[in-house]
Design a protein around this nucleic acid. Structure first.
Lengths: 189, 189
DNA sequence: CCATGATGCGAGTAATTACTCGTATTGCCT
DNA sequence: AGGCAATACGAGTAATTACTCGCATCATGG
């Protein structure tokens, strides 16, 4: 029931956007009444928050698996795995990902959600620490968040252009991330 | 009068966000009546669109100046100029920039606005063409949009973290952009 | 000082919508 | 079957808000 509402919310956000998102529409889409919806969620915001948690958890799982499989790889190969995970997730429902990225900042995030965010960043930080020798950045946490932001931006841009070739997109993300992480501020190669 | 409304809209968006943005609040903030507002703008959306045009034109001007001054520089130095321009603009009103980035996609953009967007990208494309020899990317237009997306993402991320050191941020953007533009897909340096 | 057109005003209207609550239905235990 | 608690229902309510329109005010020319 909760799941049905959350999925209905996702569909409404995808098709009608933030402006067309309302609880009546969500309840109808979920095949239940508004009254029932409010038995499971205290407010409209809570529905969006639950959806945010769900999507973030899916990303965290995919990233965790990628990090696991990338433990003994080079930095570049490891970044490829992570980029692939992010692409699979964000490209599965690009419109939804974009809206949630925008809203998440404003939502009163529960601790559980914030912990998931830390989880995702934590995997990236661990990977960076493992390859610390080749990095030209000092603050690994900041670098992790920035790399995630770069990946999101490039996936968004690709999705906005239409048809996406995931392998090429993966390469673009890795190149940008490697430049960020290992590039020299001033000087040739 | 038009300018007062547009600036009031900017302030409301910054302080109350998309959800708290309504024409009554904008009119009050602008020091005029709702009726007067609707003499100058046909709809609420038109106010946001006008604001979007204004902000985009400011960015275009700054980018044009930067591109001008970077005409004879190396790719890296030219990217520094462009990044600096983007940072000055987007960091001046980060919350506003973020909201407009999100809304612009959805807005029925007038031709004038779309032309400005093409202008900005055009400057980047021209710069890339001038340094085509060192690039490892083929599609310059796509690359330009992607580099812009990277810059936006890193500026947003920095703004979200709080206090920003513009010079360091500029360096991060340039490193990521250079990696994207000149990095090799597989292989060391 | 008046006439007239343009500009400004803001209470009002109709539509939307988050959320409630009294009633109906269901499922379970004896 | 009967009683009862839990769940589901959806019409209704109060608040918000995009936009209108009849009136007031102002500016200009004679």
């Amino acid at each position: 029931m909760v799941d049905a509402v959350v999925e209905a919310a996702a569909r409404i956000l995808e098709t009608r956007g933030l402006g067309g998102f309302n609880t009546n529409a969500v309840a109808e889409r979920a095949g239940i009444s508004v009254g029932s919806l409010y038995q499971y969620f205290p407010s409209k915001e809570a529905v969006v928050a639950a959806l945010s948690v769900r999507e973030r958890a899916l990303l965290a799982a995919e990233v965790a698996a990628a990090a696991q499989s990338a433990a003994s790889l080079s930095l570049e190969d490891a970044l490829h795995r992570l980029a692939g995970a992010a692409i699979r997730r964000q490209l599965a429902r690009p419109a939804l990902a974009r809206i949630l990225d925008f809203e998440e900042q404003r939502l009163a995030l529960e601790e559980s959600d914030r912990a998931t965010t830390r989880d995702i960043a934590g995997h990236v930080v661990a990977l960076l620490r493992a390859h610390g020798a080749v990095l030209t950045v000092a603050d690994l946490e900041k670098a992790a968040f920035d790399v995630i932001a770069i990946a999101r931006a490039l996936i968004d841009a690709a999705a906005g252009r239409g048809a996406v070739e995931p392998t090429a997109l993966e390469g673009r993300i890795v190149r940008a991330a490697l430049g960020y992480l290992t590039g020299l501020s001033h000087g040739a190669c």
